[in-house]
Design a protein around this nucleic acid. Structure first.
Length: 416
RNA sequence: GCCCCUGUCGUCUAGCGGUUUAGGACACUUGGUUCUCAUCCAAGAAACCACCGGUUCGAAUCCGGUCAGGGGUACCA
């Protein structure tokens, strides 16, 4: 309600135990957007307190995802593994206060049974409360000297003056533990906002089973930053009204936790595909995106750098849902062989074209006129003519192909 | 089992006690534009607002219960 006096500071605190999937990345996005919308700061903290589960390369992947999406953090990246003494100090403080106790080499905390912890969650503006008796005894400092999430998180959030903790719903039941720690240290707790979890088509938590991919995977499949950002934002947030397609800037201005939904959304790849197609048709530097996307593909590179590239790109844009579609669209490869009947028709077309265009320029106007004439006289639908000329059932327009390849391309296809 | 959260078209959602015969988008169907396909445009189908009860002159909107789904229940985060 009244956090005007302190500058908003939020953090994204992933653990490097795997590559973040869409759900985790969306948590980063919401934190970032909240910071932007409130002119606050967004901190990145790596929670590497579980040695056994750290995955090599995960941290780099986290950086790469944020970098690629344009989610920039303020200040240095923090690593919890660098503050071990600090956590021990605070664990000792709790030990001294008789709030914590040692057991089997670890430091534990048990919330008094008669206590109740309540907070107003910023998502949904609802009160959530837990009775102390329902919260299990928990470890704050492991026997290997590393803190658990509960201790490290609370200490770091306090020390870095985090005002709002925006994290996944899976943390709701840990929140009373955190609240108890804040109380025991005599610290003012931040506000909490718990985001819904993203569900797979079978309505269970999005996971490896559904092929829960990371933003990096989608990038490799030809999705744009714009559409991924747009799509993730839409999964649980809506600025109100009928707006669907929105850019980063708009989100940064309009984001509010009040407009974040409480229910768990289902991930619908169809909508992402549509959004991606829409964004492909919107961006003005499609050529650069393609050049970057196909940087390892010699053939496509050559084509993109040719003088005809703009015609290609323009013709392909409305037919692409992902950047990967481009290669298929521009490929001169036929999709299937012609049948006997089709071969006969093709040679007929070939003769007709040479008769019609023999003395004329093979330009678009004459070419199209000749095709229309053939279609009318022979009563052949254009669908068939397209196939005869290109070897494909559908694709880039004949006139664009004529601009790019010229008549030899069609004559060759008619013969084969 | 226990604790917590959630429940509007297949999906994402608008809706915040009356202006709702519940709106938009994706997907789907049909028609138009068109050199195929796509784009674009138009139209259509699709939600007894999970269910039951209560409050109220009036409820998708407030309350209770039921059911269903999700999350948690580790010396993981």
């Amino acid at each position: 309600m009244k956090e005007q006096n302190s500058k908003v500071r939020v953090r994204f605190a992933p653990s490097p135990t795997g590559i973040p999937h869409i759900g985790n990345t969306r948590t980063a996005l919401f934190n970032y957007l909240f910071a932007k919308a409130n002119k606050g700061e967004f901190i990145l903290r790596i929670e590497d307190t579980d040695n056994k589960r750290i995955v090599k390369g995960a941290e780099e992947a986290i950086f790469e995802i944020l970098r690629w999406l344009g989610i920039k953090h303020d200040g240095e990246v923090l690593h919890q593994s660098e503050g071990l003494d600090l956590y021990k100090k605070y664990a000792q403080e709790l030990l001294d206060k008789k709030i914590a106790h040692k057991k089997e080499g670890a430091v534990w905390v048990k919330i008094p049974e008669d206590k109740t912890f309540e907070w107003t969650d910023q998502v949904g503006q609802k009160k959530i409360s837990f009775a102390g008796k329902d919260v299990d005894e928990f470890v704050i400092l492991k026997s290997d000297g590393y803190p658990t999430y509960h201790l490290a998180n609370v200490v770091d959030d306090y020390l870095t003056k985090i005002t709002h903790v925006i994290r996944g719903e899976e943390w709701i039941s840990s929140t009373p533990k955190h609240l108890y720690l804040y109380e025991s240290f005599d610290w003012q707790p931040p506000k909490f906002a718990h985001l819904s979890v993203i569900l797979g088509p079978d309505k269970t938590k999005l996971s490896k089973r559904h092929g829960a991919k990371s933003v990096l995977d989608y990038r490799n499949e030809g999705y744009l930053q714009e559409s991924l950002l747009n799509f993730m934002a839409l999964l649980g947030w809506n600025p109100g009204g009928d707006i669907e397609k929105m850019d980063f800037k708009f989100m940064e201005e309009k984001f509010s936790l009040k407009d974040v939904n409480t229910a768990n959304p289902v991930f619908d790849i169809k909508k992402l595909e549509w959004l991606n197609g829409a964004w492909i048709r919107t961006i003005t530097d499609l050529d650069k995106r393609l050049l970057d996307f196909y940087k390892a593909d010699k053939d496509v590179q050559k084509l993109l750098k040719s003088s005809k590239s703009q015609i290609f790109i323009k013709a392909a844009a409305s037919r692409m849902r992902t950047l990967t579609d481009f290669k298929e669209l521009i490929s001169g490869k036929i999709s299937r062989a012609k049948t006997k009947e089709e071969q006969a028709l093709a040679s007929k077309l070939s003769q007709s074209l040479s008769r019609e265009l023999g003395s004329k320029n093979w330009d678009n106007e004459n070419f199209l006129a000749a095709l229309k004439k053939f279609s009318k006289i022979e009563n052949i639908p254009f669908k068939i003519i397209y196939f005869l000329l290109t070897g494909k059932e559908h694709g880039i327009g004949l006139l664009e192909l004529n601009d790019i390849y010229g008549k030899e391309f069609f004559l060759k296809n008619l013969k084969s």
